[in-house]
């Protein structure tokens, strides 16, 4: 399934002008590209390979190694649910179950309305407030299953208003 030729590659020009010739910048370039496109489309990976003089395989290898990189689009809001040790001990599994039931998705998926994607991570560094999740830029702590669902509904309501 190639989506080559669909992305507006000119959006990358600025990033490539700044970093393409700086050695060791592949990860930085992919991070910036993901900020632009929301994920890493295949044609973007080819463009990065060409501009940095790497093989497409090397670029793909890096893109698939790190969990930050996504090869498919995400929903409007990204839920990062922590399943680190502290959050595990304080009940992150039950919170995950509640979120999955509310949105009818599993870890790594996006809800049918395209509003939410769920991604579990290990430690957001706010362990003393565990269990913790981050939705977009905001961190929510001391979660219970009910509280997590309420937060999601509030965001959804805010979007609809």
């Amino acid at each position: 399934m190639c989506d080559c030729g669909k992305s507006d590659l000119t959006l990358l020009d600025g990033v490539l002008a700044e970093y393409a010739s700086v050695r060791g910048s592949l990860i930085t370039i992919l991070q910036k590209a993901q900020e632009i496109y929301g994920y890493l489309p295949t044609d973007v990976l080819y463009r990065v390979a060409e501009a940095t003089g790497s093989t497409p395989a090397k670029v793909m290898g890096v893109a698939t190694f790190y969990t930050q990189f996504r090869l498919t689009p995400v929903g409007k809001h990204l839920i990062m649910l922590c399943k680190g040790t502290a959050c595990h001990v304080n009940g992150a599994d039950a919170v995950e179950k509640a979120i999955c039931e509310e949105l009818k998705i599993k870890d790594g998926e996006t809800s049918d309305d395209g509003l939410f994607s769920l991604k579990t991570v290990a430690c957001l560094g706010c362990c003393s407030l565990s269990p913790v999740m981050m939705i977009d830029e905001d961190t929510y702590g001391s979660l219970t299953p009910a509280k997590a669902v309420e937060i999601i509904r509030t965001i959804k309501g805010g979007d609809a208003a």
Binding site: R23, I27, T28, K58, V62, Y66, Q68
Partner: peptide, 21 residues
């Protein structure tokens, strides 16, 4: 900025990552 990989805390893996691999 790292890109999410626990093993990159290991010093030689971290160096590989710094080099963009």
């Amino acid at each position: 900025a790292g890109a999410g990989a626990f093993v990159c805390g290991e010093e030689t893996a971290l160096i590989e990552s710094l080099e963009g691999s």
